[in-house]
Design a protein around this nucleic acid. Sequence first.
DNA 1: GTCTATAGTCCGATAGAC
DNA 2: GTCTATCGGACTATAGAC
Lengths: 188, 188
Amino acid sequence: MGRWENNARSRLEAAALELYSGRGFEQTTVAEIAARAGLTERTYFRHFADKREVLFGGGQALREFLVQQVNQAPQALAPLEAVVAAFEALDFFAAEQRGHSRQRQRLIEANAALHERELMKLAQLSAALREVLRQRGTPGPAAAVAAEVGMAIFKLAFERWTEESNEQAFAQLVRDALSELRAVVAGD
Amino acid sequence: MGRWENNARSRLEAAALELYSGRGFEQTTVAEIAARAGLTERTYFRHFADKREVLFGGGQALREFLVQQVNQAPQALAPLEAVVAAFEALDFFAAEQRGHSRQRQRLIEANAALHERELMKLAQLSAALREVLRQRGTPGPAAAVAAEVGMAIFKLAFERWTEESNEQAFAQLVRDALSELRAVVAGD
DNA sequence: GTCTATAGTCCGATAGAC
DNA sequence: GTCTATCGGACTATAGAC
C-alpha cells in the first residue's frame, strides 16, 4: 500500500463532497478538506487547481469516452445521430451512481461558483464534440450546430436524470429529449 | 454635479476593459481599476460583486429585453419562432458596437475565469427564456427544449458575429444558424 | 514547507443630496 | 433630519511564489 496510499485524490474527493454537502461550499475551507483526508492544504493544491475542481474530476473521463464513441460511430450516422448514440452508450450514469449524482447536483445548484464550473466543463465537452465531428468529416458549421444541439439534449436528459422524482434510465431520457427537440424544431 | 460624478459604474467599466485588455485580466488588480476610475477598491466592490462582474453589466439588460420580446410575441408563433424573433430584434448588437464586442470577446476567450462567468450569464438567459415561454403557455418540457435550442442558436450567431472576418448583420447570422440547425436535426 | 499577494467581507465613519 | 454613495482599516482564505 505504499507510503502514499495513492488514493489521496479519491480521499480528497470524498472528504470534499461530505464537507461541502454537510456545511456548505463556502463554509468549508480547503484546509479542512485536506485534514479530513489526512493530508495538508499544500497537497490538495497539487491535486486540484482550486477549491471547486475537486468535484469535477470525472469530467475528463466523460469527455474522452464520448469523443471515442463518436469517433468510432459508423460513417452512415448523421452527426447528431452519432452524438446521441454516444450519450445512449454512457454507463457513467448507471443506476448505482444516481444517488451520488443527485447529491452532487443539488450541491452544484445551490452554489453559483460551482454552477459556473459545471457550465465550463460542459462547454469543454461541446468543444470536444465539435472537434471530433469535424475530424470525422462533418463540415465546420454543421459540426458546431450538432455539438451545440447535442449538448442541449445532454443537459435536458441529465437534468431530468438527477431529479428526485425521476426513475427512467439515462438512455431513455436522451431519446425523449431528442424527440421533443425534433417536435420543437419542426415548429409544433 | 456634486461630489460624486455619479457615473462611477461607467468609469469602473471603462477602466477595467482598458486595463484587462492592455495587461491581462490576472495581471490587473481591483485596486488599479479603482484608482484609474478615481475611486477606491472598497467602492469597486459596492458596484460589482467580484473582479469579473465589471465586464458583464450588460447581461441583465439583454435578458430583460429578450424576455419582453418573447412575452409580447404573437401567440401564433411557435416557441422556438418566438425566441428566434426576439434574437433578430436585438439592437444591442448594432454595427457600431461590434468593435467593442470583439475586444471584449477576445478578452473573455483568453481567460478561463471570464469564460466561466460568461457561460453563467448565458445560462441565466436560458432559464429566463424557459420561464417566459412557460408563462406564455408552452408546456414545461417544450419550453425547456426551446430555450436550450434557442441558446444554441444565439451562441453560434454571436460567435460568428464577433469573428474578425465576419461582417454579416446579427439578425442574418441568427437566421443562418436556425436553418443550419433545421438541417442538422432533420438528419441531413 | 514557508511566505506573500490579493480577492472579497465586515465593521464603522463621512460627505453630499433631498 | 433621512438616504445614499464614498472611504478606511482590519480581517480571512485562496492561490501562487520561492
